[in-house]
Nucleic acid binder design. Structure first.
Lengths: 355, 355
DNA sequence: ATCGCAACTGCAAAGGTTTGCAGCAGAAGT
DNA sequence: ACTTCTGCTGCAAACCTTTGCAGTTGCGAT
């Protein structure tokens, strides 16, 4: 039923190859012929069959984007940015949700491998080994995680966590809890490491609670444990958990920030709308989405199938790190102790390089 | 580089057609042969090329899912439900965001047409005519909208709006504002119609404010106008707008619900977490996602290309309507007037059929 | 007049898979 | 012993497009 290239060829009295060129290499065909072909195509409602095209060119002009949980407001800005960036390069983005499930992730990579030119893995929960192995099947760019040998774009949550701890310390908090995220999350490990170092540097104790599901419920569920732990401040793996935590603390009669200060991470839109407004670490998610698309498409210009040009065997495996910043709102307040130092506490933490 | 069916055939000493059948019609091949083929395939890491398969069978086993705005928390539950339902039927869902832009919608339908077996259009902003026309290119199921001749699944927001108005009236509100949604939204028209009827029935005045973008900002922006309008209650197009509105009203010193009552629609997860918790119309989004997938796949069983079987020319264009219900939380309270009637106000509204 | 060249177009192979048809062996039925 | 059937396998066409190569035409240059 749908018109094929052959129908157009017949209708316009040229060979199918001319029709093909009219679309994929217009400069190679006589303007007069071209317009006639275009008219016929228009009239017949012809659209090139992308499956057939992909079969022979090896390029689909599609990009897959896998996120751990599409219900997490952290992702939509990233997705939208990636989509608009891709659209500019004449690519389409297909989004899929993996339900935070490594098995689903693997299956989806296989399923998508042949239907896309590359895959953006956002916060994957698979093992590094598996990711590396899968990358032989289809070009991969990893977001929110480092995988050696693969291009990746990460946000410097370590720095953000450090800033958060220093902020809390500066407010006079000495007993801080870290509300951990999901097992298998690179970001989670990073936060934990950096927060641990920062706490040590400022002389605070850090209690790690977790792992937990990175959702409101994950935060809700830990409220009582936080209360019992006796800490006066909490750094949460993400804003969603922070919001859930605050909500439940409130039900328990614990006030934020007067009783306990809470800091989130991500700066999702919602964090500006809850009461109290959330102090949080802002991550440049839109920039990450754009950067990931750019990295994926970096080697693309028409290299038909192979791994870029023969000469430069290794794909340049750039690793982009985007800076984060602390946004101070209303969920953090003075703690029980006098601030440690008049000077910026940051000066006391000359540990590792930034990333 | 990736192993093809031919490689497997060579390795296992059979014809490619046998390999093909091993995967797509196992019962037609000798168990012994089959296991040998499977072993070789496994060993070579062979995976059928879906593009090639799609080319000949005409089925991709993919479903496209277009949403107006992926950042709207209304959609993720729908998406997740659709994905899981599709997975059970061995289909994959590709999600795309249209930015509430009809032009993007049209372009995406064209782009996806040949790469999916069908498309789920969620809250499309295109004209009915265009949608009908596009439906000749690829099977379509419309969600959150009625398009004559096309299968659709809608939530009965009209009923929900009526319940909301009756609830407000019952609380003693007589001057109610309707915070309208985006132009082109079927849901918006439906709410407006039903709310108008219900207001008339209970003897309240309904002021329509809009259209507005269906986001927090859309609600924020209208707060002052709401305040000036002198109404004591507001029904918002969706929860996001309601939340934005409440937030800004609060900044303006207007308290919810003591000064103004606010009702949202959708019952997104967030509406349970804001302060005050939002009274809202719950829509069964997950059920909608499942239903949409089912409708799309209803005629599928292996009909290779054509419009179902020859006999029943017309695709059954079922229209599923899902019920909504009012969830009363903390954003609505007593109004300035005595409740109209002791009896349930609903009795006074014997107007049209439910949907 | 001839040649070279540019611009355009047609030919046919290729890409990986599915599937109707035909072939084959062996078993079962007569 | 002959046919019929069953169960399995191979053959080759088909799906729709792209693209290297070769062919045609017309033009300016020699």
């Amino acid at each position: 039923m749908p018109a094929t290239i052959r129908d157009v060829a017949r209708a316009s009295g040229v060979h199918i190859s001319t029709v093909s060129r009219t679309f994929s290499a217009p400069h190679l065909v006589n303007p007069e012929t071209r317009s006639r072909v275009l008219a016929c195509a228009e009239h017949l409602g012809y659209r090139p069959n992308r499956a057939a095209r992909a079969l022979i060119t090896g390029r689909t002009h599609n990009i897959g984007l896998m996120v751990a949980d599409i219900a997490n407001p952290f992702f939509p800005p990233l997705i939208k940015a990636a989509e608009s960036q891709a659209r500019h390069r004449d690519y389409h983005i297909f989004v899929t949700d993996t339900n935070e499930d490594p098995a689903v992730e693997e299956e989806l990579v296989h399923a998508l491998a042949k239907q896309v030119d590359g895959l953006l893995l956002c916060s994957p929960r698979m093992s590094n080994d598996l990711i590396q192995q899968l990358s032989r099947e289809v070009p991969l760019v990893v977001v929110n995680r480092h995988v050696t040998g693969l291009p990746s774009v990460v946000m410097d949550v370590g720095q953000g966590a450090r800033l958060a701890i220093e902020h809390l310390s500066g407010l006079g908090h000495r007993d801080i809890a870290l509300l951990g995220g999901p097992r298998g999350s690179w970001t989670n490990r990073e936060i934990r490491r950096a927060a641990g170092n920062a706490a040590r540097a400022v002389g605070a104790t850090l209690t790690v609670l977790g792992p937990n599901p990175p959702t409101e419920d994950g935060g809700l569920a830990m409220a009582e444990q936080v209360q019992r732990s006796g800490v006066t401040a909490v750094l949460a793996y993400n804003d969603l958990m922070a919001i859930g935590l605050i909500e439940r603390l409130d039900s328990l009669g614990v006030r934020v920030p007067s009783d306990i200060s809470v800091v989130g991470i991500d700066d999702i839109a919602l964090s500006r709308l809850t009461r109290p407004k959330l102090t949080t670490v802002a991550t440049p998610t839109a920039a990450a989405g754009r950067a990931a698309v750019d990295m994926l498409l970096a080697h693309d210009p028409s290299s038909p199938r192979g791994r870029s040009i023969a000469g430069d065997g290794r794909r340049t495996t750039a690793q982009v790190t985007l800076q984060t910043e602390l946004v101070i709102r209303d969920s953090t307040g003075p703690g029980p102790h006098r601030p440690a130092d008049p000077g910026d506490a940051a000066a006391a933490a000359p540990d590792g390089v930034a990333s």
